[in-house]
Design a protein around this nucleic acid. Structure first.
Length: 262
DNA sequence: GAGTATGTTATATG
DNA sequence: GCATATAACATACT
């Protein structure tokens, strides 16, 4: 589930359901998913403390518990659930028992991560994250992209430049801006780059507003039917699939013209 | 069995 | 350091 909008929905879930609850138990069910932390240190920091806040930066979630933060990354297939005391999910990897119910991180593919950070700054520095994609200014976005020679799509996916855009939303924003994903960043005019920055925020906000249900996205969104051969929402040409930066990329060969500089 | 998947990181090469 | 490519991680699904 997880790009920025999905993680924002998860953040709101934690905020609405967990704040004020007390942590009564911690069970690490897959130690391979521990990120630079130990179950023991997590217990010492979180047990008998109260959940205060839920913060998101890019695709990363921090749950403030007492004076420390529980770090959660959903990877490719992670999801959060509230269950009863005796309830379970099929791929439970971390369980946070609360005075009422429990929070479970379920993740079949185990690409998710969890652990302990003292504060946000520690996490940002450790992960080397750029500014959050939802709140970065156009000016900052343009300046962080300036002078880059790579193709635009891999740059959008680079969490160190801006944090939160993943493969699907990268395709969406490039489609809406009619930019070919392999366009070199230094071939994009400043004004077009600023427009792309705006588009990123708009698309992410829109997805959050429909709770990331792609079928409820406005007409004209690629994500409503993102697959090879589907009709382009703008011109009905059949969409094609290529690989850019090693990632599957869906685009309209007619709307997203290949630019000379590539 | 082959191929692919919303992510990240390590490694290698130029 | 930058740019690019590839593999690896682990599992589910077509």
């Amino acid at each position: 589930m997880p790009e920025l909008p999905e993680v924002e929905i998860a953040r709101r879930f934690v905020r609405d359901r967990l704040i004020g609850k007390r942590v009564t138990s911690i069970d690490v069910l897959d130690s391979r998913m521990l990120a630079r932390s130990s179950e023991r240190s997590m217990r010492a920091a979180f047990l008998e403390r109260t959940v205060d806040d839920a913060i998101r930066h890019g695709k990363n979630l921090l749950v403030k518990i007492g004076d420390d933060h529980l770090y959660l990354h959903l990877g490719m297939s992670g999801s959060l659930h509230m269950v009863d005391e005796d309830g379970h999910t099929s791929h439970e990897r971390l369980r946070l028992g609360l005075d009422e119910g429990a929070l479970v991180l379920d993740d079949p593919r185990r690409f998710g991560r969890f652990g302990l950070y003292h504060d946000i700054e520690d996490m940002l520095a450790d992960k080397g994250l750029g500014p959050d994609a939802l709140t970065v200014s156009d000016k900052e976005f343009v300046s962080r992209m300036a002078g880059r020679k790579s193709s635009i799509k891999p740059l959008l996916l680079d969490q160190g430049i801006i944090a939160g855009v993943g493969n699907l939303y990268a395709d969406e924003v490039l489609f809406q801006e009619q930019l070919h994903p392999a366009t070199k960043a230094n071939a994009i005019a400043r004004t077009d780059m600023a427009r792309l920055g705006k588009r990123i925020r708009k698309v992410l906000e829109t997805s959050i507003s429909v709770r990331t249900d792609f079928s409820r996205l406005p007409e004209g969104y690629l994500l409503r039917d993102r697959r090879e051969g589907a009709p382009c929402p703008r011109c009905a040409t059949e969409l094609v699939v290529i690989r850019v930066g090693g990632r599957t990329t869906v685009l309209c060969p007619s709307c997203q013209s290949q630019r000379a500089e590539r």
